[in-house]
Design a protein around this nucleic acid. Sequence first.
DNA 1: TTAGGATAAGTTGGATCCAATCCAGGATCA
DNA 2: TGATCCTGGATTGGATCCAACTTATCCTAA
Lengths: 218, 218
Amino acid sequence: MTTSAPEVASQRIAAYLRAEILSGRIGPGERIRQEDVAARLGASRLPVREALRILEAEGLTEHSANRGARVPALTMRQVDMLYQIRERVEPLALVDGLPRVDATLLDRLVDLEKRIEAGTEVGEFVALDREFHLLTYSTCDQELLTSMIVRLWNSTQHYRRAYLAITGLSHRWVAHAEHNLLIEAMRRGDPADAERYLAGHIRRTRTELSRHPEAFAA
Amino acid sequence: MTTSAPEVASQRIAAYLRAEILSGRIGPGERIRQEDVAARLGASRLPVREALRILEAEGLTEHSANRGARVPALTMRQVDMLYQIRERVEPLALVDGLPRVDATLLDRLVDLEKRIEAGTEVGEFVALDREFHLLTYSTCDQELLTSMIVRLWNSTQHYRRAYLAITGLSHRWVAHAEHNLLIEAMRRGDPADAERYLAGHIRRTRTELSRHPEAFAA
DNA sequence: TTAGGATAAGTTGGATCCAATCCAGGATCA
DNA sequence: TGATCCTGGATTGGATCCAACTTATCCTAA
């Protein structure tokens, strides 16, 4: 999760495409042609090929031989399963990092949550919500676990945005309450409650999503 | 999980290296030089590079710029976490596929378990045990979930073998009992019991592993 | 009119060559 | 004597060219 520009071309290209996909500029089902990307970024196709493999590892693209790369278009059933996985896996990171949560981190979470509650734009909400949750896992130093969680967020990001674009940002008080209860449980250092509120939050989001099949591929 | 030889060189090379790593012929921490592999398989370095990216996505290798690829050497703490993830994630696949479990599959599981109980060699046990568990997930058609589970098994395979090499195959009756209870719960189509026995089996294995730090990297 | 197949354009996969980087060993200087 | 800098070998990263595959289009025939 470094923000500085990587010195290696394949990493730089991967970062570019990652941003394109996560922002929604490249949507599910859309094809990514190696030559297009190479020409746009002033490189040969070779580092683009490597970049696409890197993104495949992150769940952002899928690859089939001689047919190129595209952003996976997930069904509602697949996204539902990804949320079930999140519900079980993310509490592990939260509880693992809980002993190292300090006042500075809690302040940042409170600040982020305020900005989330004040926000009016869907794209902004998606970004801030992602930042909020990933920040709650930032004290977990189990790289294998946190990278898996980032993959899960990556794969489902588009459908979160699509859902919010449909429902709008009104009636979000439930999510805000859950976020604040999560922060409070973290402040108390209570692993059971932290896991409870987090799992409940993810589960409720999943249920809401399943009420909007129009956010998914046909 | 196709067994036929892939037509694409990068896939074929990936399959070769995958077998080398899973069998233990390439161990944790060991470096994989592109030229070595290319020369051995009669290809150029390019498809080897792609193969290493594919394996990286599967958790079998790790990559750093200009420093090449190697098989990750995990600490006991990391493997313990992977087992905690397995404990929470694998029951999802089991329960998801449970309605489609039929008599033929149960027969195959019973047969496999008999061969596991009759086995005397560690390498054979590791392979059969893997086959047994992955077979219990074979009716789960959620590709995203099952591929994640395969990755988890891949990453921990070496340490299972190392553990068994230390402790031997005696006193394995607990695992056998757990396997048989799992089969029986699947026969009844009971998701609660199936999840219970599976999670317990993984958890107990994790506990046993944590008693043998000598199986891990320093 | 439509189904089928041949063909051609477009795209990806692979090989070879060159450039950039890393690492170990030794020489130089304080 | 010790640390630092430099240099050469080894290895990976990238560019260009060619081959193989996929796919869409157009023509032919029923």
